[in-house]
Amino acid sequence: MSPDEVHYPGAVPPARTRFVRSLGLRLHVCEWGDPDGEPVLLTHGFYDHARSFDLLAPLLAERYRVVAMDARGHGDSDRPDAYAWFPGLIDVVNMLRDLGRPAHVVGHSWGGGQATDAATLHPGSVRKLVNMDGFGPPEEGFHVPGRDRDERPAPGQLAGWLDWRVANHSRETFRPCATLEELAERRRQQNPRLSSEWLRYFAAHGSYHTPEGWVWKVDPMAARNIGPFRPEWIAPGWARLRAPMLALVGSEPDTWGPLPEPMLARRLSHVPKVERGVIPGAGHFMHIEQPEAVARIVLDWLEAG
């Protein structure tokens, strides 16, 4: 079955796709809604892709020109030689510049963090910012079921990373699955709140077939990054944010968030203009679990004052 034959209730494929150049890379872009409308840029989470917005984008597109980018190394965007946080921010700013006028930005998870830092880096490009549970890992890191944290001292972690690179740096694909269903089910282990039906749709539009089987459209190298990063460095820079932020979390505990409330409140205390919102009955993937509720709160907030 070809991916175009896999459907999901409410999911609308993009009306237009194209590429935008950033730092030499071609970034893949999906668009919904009036091409002359006010732009809203969507930035997806780590290991996701632009089509993760197939439920939310059409709802926002009733009012806006909605533009979702595949991050570098994800989806149909180019894969760079190496990864770092900062060049991804330049990609977001380049996307915003391509839109030709200041835009609203809605980012999820890792993409929410990128959007927030990009708005801090280049304040003139962002009108309003919606961050969907993208406030960084807890200070002790995310606890992912079935995955042990690397407790070695920094040099041991660096050696582990180097060894992994030596073993894998020629690989273009990662852990192939015999079928799309298997690929989707494996994802469910990390995202247990998402339905098999959605994950099958998500997999169909975010994977490709190789002689070894089905693999995600994501660079194996993108999943492994290393450096002396400290979660407590995340939020103080947000004091420079000029755009108002709507900070959304789901009401339900989930693997990748939300942060414990005191930690989240402390981080958001750095943001000059912030409003909070909670999406009832949703976990980390609120835009997939409750797209109508997210669209309503986002549209109301973007329209207000």
């Binding site: 730092l23 030499g24 890379l25 570098r72 180019d78 894969r79 760079p80 030689d81 190496a82 990864y83 770092a84 060049p87 330049i90 660096l158 990373w161 180097l162 690179r165 290393i226 450096g227």
Partner: peptide, 13 residues
């Protein structure tokens, strides 16, 4: 570096 990701750790690699 295609894509401009220069960090000490990437140079270590």
């Amino acid at each position: 570096s295609f894509g401009g990701s220069y960090t000490p750790e990437n140079l270590v690699a």
